[in-house]
Design a protein around this nucleic acid. Sequence first.
DNA 1: TAACTAATTTGTAATGATTATAATTTTATA
DNA 2: TATAAAATTATAATCATTACAAATTAGTTA
Lengths: 143, 143
Amino acid sequence: MMFEKYVNLLKNKSIQITPQRLEILRYLDKHRNHPTAYQIYTDLKKNNPSLSKTTVYNSLEILNKHNIINSISITGLESRYDIINEMHHHFMCKKCGRIIDIEITCPNIKKTLEIGHKIEEVHGYFKGKCKECLEKEIDKHES
Amino acid sequence: MMFEKYVNLLKNKSIQITPQRLEILRYLDKHRNHPTAYQIYTDLKKNNPSLSKTTVYNSLEILNKHNIINSISITGLESRYDIINEMHHHFMCKKCGRIIDIEITCPNIKKTLEIGHKIEEVHGYFKGKCKECLEKEIDKHES
DNA sequence: TAACTAATTTGTAATGATTATAATTTTATA
DNA sequence: TATAAAATTATAATCATTACAAATTAGTTA
């Protein structure tokens, strides 16, 4: 029951169902904060001490290849992961490091198709200072 | 004369002028194929054997911080670099690995400003199969 | 159900990009 | 020219990711 949703996701793409893959999917569904592979690994290891880092990487790769999850490059350091829902963009705060979903779609897709390249993924990200960090700065100046 | 353009770029931002920084800028101006730090390093080392990898990284960082160059995250593996001209997006071919400039601007900037985060950088990238790789595939099927 | 094959998981080691550090050199300034 | 600050260099360390081989698990067939 608990994993039915994720079982179906895998079945639809005829990917073999394993407990590890289901756990990773459930994790990404619950944690929408764009975790790194390492974060997923350490958190899931708590309930499954024999979990291997390699498994996490392998699973993320196969899930990404089948468009069940999204691998996003923003930081330049590591990849972040996202369970796929509607298309959206990301905002990374240079101050606190948070990555925030931005609920807009890209209106450029049509244009880019005309160039002749086949578009399979659309990624957009912004960098700057997030609302919260901006407000903290104002507070400091006022005090 | 040769480096005047780059000297001015640095002067305008009051960044200290060094031969290494000028060479890196000239390299990025000439090579618009989004090279990695390592590519820049090995190519420039040919004419300057004492060049250090750390210098390349340090220079790229300071140039990026002052918005003279752009650091782009697409591959998840490494950062790529771009001398800044007009705003554009990127396309990465999953087959041949090339990163191609896409000459469109992002019409989302206005929208995102309304959310309250301060946008300092706008990045967009697409992934898929490039025109050339697509054509090669067709050729194969026809033969 | 048992036996067999293929796929997955695991643990460890290797790789590759980037960063830290300290000594040396260069540049800017008095 | 002497001095201080900044940049460069070389090396070592770190961190994310990948390669590899052995052990385990899942799927299939008799």
